[in-house]
Design a protein around this nucleic acid. Structure first.
Lengths: 110, 110
DNA sequence: CAGGATCCAGCAAGATACTG
DNA sequence: CAGTATCTTGCTGGATCCTG
């Protein structure tokens, strides 16, 4: 590993940080990993999230192309949210966080 | 990779997220990776950070045992900040973020 | 040099009411 | 069902002044 491999690129890391900024982004991504979900389904699973917070974070993730929003023109309308490839790839970051967390929280003294 | 390897553990991931919450934590960790640094040295390198923001984030990282604070009783006093092992290990998370960022920002369409 | 204390603006996020 | 609109509050982060 040379110095370049080791350096952090501000732009790249910052983009990654913005994706999970806020209180709920990580949980939304977790929810969508295994299933496409509709709005109210997400709301139930993320209880006690407010409608506003949920819509805000969904818009945020959509702008960053982490999730895809598909409107299904039934009556009443329904909207499905799913992870994009970019969003699915983000899981490697979250898994690395989990690893670090487990290593240093569960067994902090080893 | 079985399902368990793939699942995100809320507590572990959340701890990892709290570490880099806020605007400056990531940059402080970057700064300290190669060198121990004193307060004003950090302040210069992180310009335009305010004194308050810097002290806040240093306290925050110290509480999470990411950095170590050592007072050196010279006159005037000087204080050295360095990464703990836990803090150094966090770099794997940031490097994973960099990788993801470079893959999906620099070449978003591949 | 390395902060502590105080004040304040701006944004995040919750509660509530309403709509196609 | 899936939101939008509005109001309100709590916290983040910057500016300024002060200190051992």
């Amino acid at each position: 590993m040379n110095r370049n491999d080791d350096q952090l690129c501000f732009t790249a890391v910052n983009e990654a940080l913005q994706v999970i900024s806020g209180k709920w982004a990580f949980l939304v991504i977790s929810q969508l990993y295994y299933d496409t979900q509709r709005f109210n389904q997400l709301k139930r699973n993320l209880d006690p999230i407010s409608i506003k917070s949920l819509t805000d974070i969904l818009r945020h993730l959509e702008q960053h192309q982490i999730i895809h929003r598909q409107v299904i023109p039934t009556i009443p309308i329904s909207v499905e949210y799913s992870l994009t490839e970019k969003g699915k790839a983000y899981r490697t970051v979250l898994l690395q966080m989990r690893q670090w967390g487990e290593r240093w929280i569960t067994n902090p003294d080893e």
